[in-house]
Design a protein around this nucleic acid. Sequence first.
DNA 1: TGCCGTACCCACCTTGAGGTAACCATGAAA
DNA 2: TTTCATGGTTACCTCAAGGTGGGTACGGCA
Lengths: 134, 134
Amino acid sequence: MKRHIDWVEVNAACEALDENEDSLTREIVTRLAEKWTLWTLAELAAADAPMRFSRLMERVEGVSQKSLTKVLRQLERDGLVTRVVFAQVPPRVEYQTTEIALEMLELVHPLWAWASSNVGKFQAARAAYDKRRK
Amino acid sequence: MKRHIDWVEVNAACEALDENEDSLTREIVTRLAEKWTLWTLAELAAADAPMRFSRLMERVEGVSQKSLTKVLRQLERDGLVTRVVFAQVPPRVEYQTTEIALEMLELVHPLWAWASSNVGKFQAARAAYDKRRK
DNA sequence: TGCCGTACCCACCTTGAGGTAACCATGAAA
DNA sequence: TTTCATGGTTACCTCAAGGTGGGTACGGCA
């Protein structure tokens, strides 16, 4: 069974990009793996409806207000969530995932599922390594 | 077109894991997005042959010796690369990707390709956001 | 004797992520 | 008039990633 990733194809996609665009790609992917990004996005997507800031704070357990604000601003800037402010008192702000975010989550999903279904292999590999080095 | 991620399925996979296993999954995915990990793995996979440390340093442009060593140790510990030391002078060490690493790269590939083919959308979203906030 | 090349390790420093806690603006309710 | 709720901002702290520049081990070679 020959196993060969088509990195040529990836390169083809990347070579069309200038240096800025290439680092943007890297940045997007990297941000996805930052501490709260994926979790926040997943909660918003799961709700399938606009969600207020404070509700999101409850759902994304352990996130600080500062971090959540920052993550949401970044996601908004990248067009992955929409932010709607209602001119009320007390203020009301609603967040929601965009189509493009859902597209992305669909690609992240299999990777995540694969990782969690292979946890055993990783534990075994680590145990073996640690024993060798003991 | 109803777009709905099956987070229930993800949860099902995750709920079977205890807390340690869950955080391991998170750790694996997070490490993938660290600065040099994916690039290193991709170079090794692309070579499709054992590669020496110094050759890898050349290919992964800009990585420091310290960082490359660390990344390789972690990948080795997780069973994603093999490390073979030849008892020679000067020393010779060969690295190579494992089957499981290739499996993983196949899942990362579509995500990466999608991100790079949507760079334009992200740039546009950012430009629009920055203009609004100007 | 002393330097070379490989693949490291270690000490030190800068940078940025992310936490805590305090403060702010607003108008309705008490 | 004071209080409250919401969605922030800001100052300050800690911790860890990651870079730089040095040292190390080894035998071969001049």
